[in-house]
């Protein structure tokens, strides 16, 4: 679409999926951004790890359950999903609780990853 330059984009997701609109609107940026054929990485930290929890049922809240979209990211060539090890542990969660395949990284590893990025968008 853009031709030429490819930058490393990191989307840093730090907030719970419901309660505020940040997670949903972050996902909208990722999906639109995919058309630009950049090198995309997603990181889930803090309460952001709840965005990937299996079996989300928020039907009583009248909000949209957008969690199935995370499973569709692969079709947009968004395949690098990293989750903070400490964030999972603090919440009593493991990879098994998540609805997509992720790689678990320590805070130090995520820091190094951020160093490599050209553009960091935090939500």
């Amino acid at each position: 679409m853009m031709g030429g330059e490819v930058k490393k984009f990191l989307y840093m997701n730090r907030k719970a999926p419901y309660g505020t609109v940040y997670a949903l609107e972050s996902l909208e940026v990722v999906l639109i951004g995919a058309a630009f054929e950049q090198d995309v990485t997603l990181v889930f930290l803090d309460d952001g790890v709840y965005q990937l929890i299996k079996g989300q049922d928020n039907s009583d809240s009248e909000m949209k359950n957008f969690s199935p979209t995370y499973r569709a990211l692969e079709m947009y060539d968004v395949e690098k999903l990293y989750v903070g090890k400490e964030a999972l542990e603090m919440r009593g969660l493991t990879e098994e609780d998540l609805l997509v395949d992720v790689e678990v990284k320590t805070a130090d590893e995520i820091r190094d990853l951020m160093e490599e990025m050209d553009v960091v968008l935090s939500f």
Partner: peptide, 17 residues
């Protein structure tokens, strides 16, 4: 559209949030 944000990230030296 949101493409303007992504394009801003591509075209600029820094994107500051």
């Amino acid at each position: 559209g949101l493409g303007q944000l992504i394009e801003g990230g591509i075209q600029s030296d820094r994107l500051v949030v």
